[in-house]
Nucleic acid binder design. Sequence first.
DNA 1: TTGACTTTGTTAGCGGTACTAACATATGTG
DNA 2: CACATATGTTAGTACCGCTAACAAAGTCAA
Lengths: 202, 202
Amino acid sequence: MIEKKKKYHHGDLKEQLVESVRQLIESHGPDGWSIAEACRSAGVSTAAPYKHFKDREEILHEVILSGMRRMGEAMQAAADAYPAGDPERIVALGKSYIDFARSEPGIFALMFGMAGSRIEAPKLTEEGRGKFAIVIRVVAEHMGRSQDDPAVNARAYALWCAVHGHSFLALDGKADKTEITVSEDDYLHLVGAAFLPPTKTD
Amino acid sequence: MIEKKKKYHHGDLKEQLVESVRQLIESHGPDGWSIAEACRSAGVSTAAPYKHFKDREEILHEVILSGMRRMGEAMQAAADAYPAGDPERIVALGKSYIDFARSEPGIFALMFGMAGSRIEAPKLTEEGRGKFAIVIRVVAEHMGRSQDDPAVNARAYALWCAVHGHSFLALDGKADKTEITVSEDDYLHLVGAAFLPPTKTD
DNA sequence: TTGACTTTGTTAGCGGTACTAACATATGTG
DNA sequence: CACATATGTTAGTACCGCTAACAAAGTCAA
């Protein structure tokens, strides 16, 4: 019975490299990784990755993309946990966003800080669009309006910004250690109430 | 008449290196710079910077710090352009924030994306605190309450998050090219009105 | 089965980068 | 002027991204 007999061909190198890089990013920061180090942890030579990726940036894209998919699933799950119209649904959606940022701060920073900046990756922007679509849909259902309604769009965007802004500021300790006294839960409810007054019935 | 006769001593290397790095960051992205390249543009050897900075990170700190100071001044100037209580004052403050993010996207990303992450720089967090203090003060004056009032704190924080979130999302083109239809001006007024209702008089 | 083709590894090496050590030159102060 | 200090240089180390040339393993049809 060969458990992990050293094979010449790794068998699953591409995915393992992505996972190794992900771990390195979480433990040493968005820039605290190298192809060489990921290779070491995967037990292959430093040239091996180039059979699967064009360059460093392409590896990073894959890592970010996997993060976006995880985040999208978390948001979807959070929204599904409450019925349409329940104000807590919006709050839960925001919480899932923030929770992801807190549990995977390195990837989160890369996803939205654009690390290398000016990344021209259609797949990434497409994934981002998909996540905004979730917010749009939840807001539309909450307000009982069409997803195309400008008011829905504006409020969904405002919610996104408020949640995203808090996520970012909370990460660096900007929110904890300065003079901010409002709790996260209170903040989320304040924001939800501000942009989605429950009196909306027309 | 010696204009720029090659002197052995540069005379102002420290500041010029910071400026060179700043330019490189704006033209090639937050990670698109190297000490070597900055040295080339300053006309010195690659070892020269180490007489002024401990390492790469310390150079970056200085660059980020200078950006924070510029941003703080811009915010202060924007707030000073309107009298206390004028709702446009809040909007102008938010605009100045966004304008800075747009005019210096590279530095902005580093300031809040924490690029290298986990930067333990008291001077940086202190500068950040100072900028939040501006918002607190403006909101307190607007609401006619003390700066210590929890309601002031919560609203100031919400405004900060909303503006910061928009700045970040707007930079990567996430806000322009997706289905977001609300204009920036409308967004700012919506946010301002949501958190600072003009009916506040008690 | 076998033998060609493809895939996925390897080693060796190039050029670029951060940083250090040892040395050289300018500046300022008694 | 003499000497200490500040600020530059050259030379060298170690690491990294990436490529080229080669080797082993998997695939598939005759």
